[in-house]
Computed example of a mutant assay.
Amino acid sequence: MSDVTKQEKKQVRVWADGCFDLAHFGHANSLRQAKKAGDYLIVGVHSDEEVLQNKGPPVMTEDERYKVIRAIKWVDEVVTAAPYVTQLETLDEYNCDFCVHGNDITLDADGKDTYRLVKDAGRYREVQRTAGISTTDVVGRMLLMTKTHHLPMLHSATILKRLKIILLLPLSAVLLIFLLLCSTMRSPYTGISHFLPSTRKIVQFAEGKEPQPSDKIVYCPGSFDLFHVGHVDFLEQASKLGDYVIVGLHTDKEINRTENSNYPIMNLHERTLSVLANKYVSEVVIGAPYKVTQELLEHFNVDVVVRGKTSYNYAADSTDPYEIPKEMGIYHEVDSGNDMSTQKIVARIIANRIKFRERNQLKEAKELRNMKRMEEKRRQEELEEQGVDH
Score class of each variant (00 low, 15 high):
Val285Arg: 10
Ala109Ser: 14
Asp215Met: 11
Tyr263Ser: 06
Val51Lys: 01
Arg65Ser: 09
Leu117His: 12
Glu62Gln: 15
Lys35Gly: 02
Lys161Cys: 02
Leu368Arg: 03
Ser214Cys: 05
Ser134Met: 05
Val281Met: 10
Val174Trp: 00
Gln33Pro: 00
Glu327Phe: 00
Val305Tyr: 05
Gly230Glu: 03
Gln361Gly: 02
Phe205Val: 06
Ala81Tyr: 01
Gly140Ser: 11
Ile133Gly: 06
Ala173Met: 15
Ser193Trp: 08
Lys279Leu: 07
Ile324Lys: 08
Lys344Phe: 01
Leu144Ala: 01
Ile324Trp: 04
Lys161Leu: 04
Met374Gln: 14
Asp120Ser: 12
Lys55Ala: 02
Pro152Asp: 00
Glu323Ala: 12
Leu151Cys: 07
Met145His: 10
Gly287Val: 05
Phe224His: 04
Met185Asn: 09
Ser172Trp: 00
Val174Gly: 00
Ile192Lys: 13
Tyr115Gly: 03
Lys161Ser: 11
Tyr244Lys: 06
Val388Gln: 08
Gly222Met: 01
Gly222Phe: 00
Leu226Trp: 00
Asn262Gly: 13
Lys372Met: 12
Asp21Trp: 02
Glu367Tyr: 03
Arg65Tyr: 08
Leu179Cys: 05
Leu180His: 06
Val139Gly: 03
Thr86Phe: 05
Arg379Met: 14
Pro197Asn: 14
Lys112Leu: 10
Val284Ala: 11
Glu385Arg: 15
Leu175Lys: 13
Gln386Leu: 15
His332Met: 09
Leu52Lys: 14
Thr310Asn: 13
Gly26Met: 05
Leu167Val: 01
Val281Ala: 12
Arg379Ala: 13
Leu176Glu: 07
Gly26Val: 04
Pro213Ala: 11
Leu151Asp: 08
Ser193Glu: 10
Tyr124Asp: 12
Val12His: 03
Val285Met: 10
Val118Ser: 08
Lys309Tyr: 03
Ser172Ala: 11
Val302Ser: 11
Phe20Thr: 01
Gly56Met: 05
Thr135Lys: 03
Leu179Arg: 15
Thr148Gln: 09
Glu207Cys: 11
Val118Phe: 07
Val304Lys: 10
Gly308Thr: 06
Thr114Ser: 11
Lys147Pro: 01
Glu283Ala: 13
Thr146Asn: 14
Ser134Leu: 08
Gly222Cys: 03
Cys19Tyr: 00
Ile330Tyr: 02
Glu385Thr: 09
Thr114Leu: 07
Ser239Ala: 15
Thr114Arg: 15
Lys67Cys: 04
Lys9Asp: 07
Gly26Glu: 04
Arg379Gln: 15
Glu283Leu: 09
Leu91His: 11
Leu235Glu: 02
Thr319Met: 06
Ala365Gln: 12
His101Thr: 07
Leu297Cys: 05
Ser183Gln: 06
